[in-house]
């Protein structure tokens, strides 16, 4: 059992008024304090290289998609957000996705897909906003996910830097 000893109030405290004035003076001073509000659409959070936003697919310089639809991100995805169907192409890389859907409502932005990808084709972009009028519109298809490599450069550089810590040099390519 805990006995809470109440502090006996002094006369001026029991009179209320001095304490009220004290409170009023505090709130008055705070009116001139620095504002903490962030004006969201105009002032955005700064994204850095470690920002892990929504996953996006890399488009190479020659406008071909880097993804070969190997399905490793699909298998790695803990939220089952990714669905991939492959198809054949005439390019040297014979395979590309026919369908690549990420259900952004399921995606938990964990970055496992980025880690699983053997082709450096999916990266966590710095895009964080997610709003639409229907659930169906938030299942992003391949066209909504494509981003030129230049738009993802920051994150690609960061991932490469981190990978260098444990990668051993190899002649395999």
């Amino acid at each position: 059992m805990v006995i809470v000893k109440r502090k006996t109030l002094s006369f001026s405290e029991r009179l209320y008024l001095p304490e009220i004035v004290r409170g009023l003076s505090i709130t008055f001073r705070k009116m001139f304090a620095k504002r903490v509000t962030r004006q969201y659409p105009e002032e955005r959070l700064e994204t850095t290289e470690v920002t892990r936003g929504q996953p996006r697919l890399v488009v190479n310089e020659d406008d071909s998609i880097a993804c070969v639809s190997c399905g490793l991100c699909e298998a790695a995805c803990p939220a089952y957000a990714i669905t991939i169907d492959g198809q054949e192409t005439d390019r040297f890389i014979e395979r590309e996705p026919e369908r690549f859907d990420i259900d952004m409502l399921r995606c938990i932005l964990c970055g496992f897909c980025e880690e699983a990808c053997p082709k450096d084709a999916i990266y966590m972009s710095d895009e964080l906003e997610l709003a639409d009028y229907s659930r169906a519109a938030l299942i992003y298809d391949i066209e909504k996910l494509k981003r030129p490599k230049s738009a993802l450069e920051q994150r690609i550089g960061y991932v490469n830097k981190i990978n260098q810590r444990w990668q051993t040099p190899s002649s395999t390519s």
Partner: peptide, 12 residues
């Protein structure tokens, strides 16, 4: 005024 007292900006 309420916003300012709470370090906010208020309607703007």
């Amino acid at each position: 005024f309420s916003a300012w007292m709470q370090y906010r900006i208020g309607p703007n």
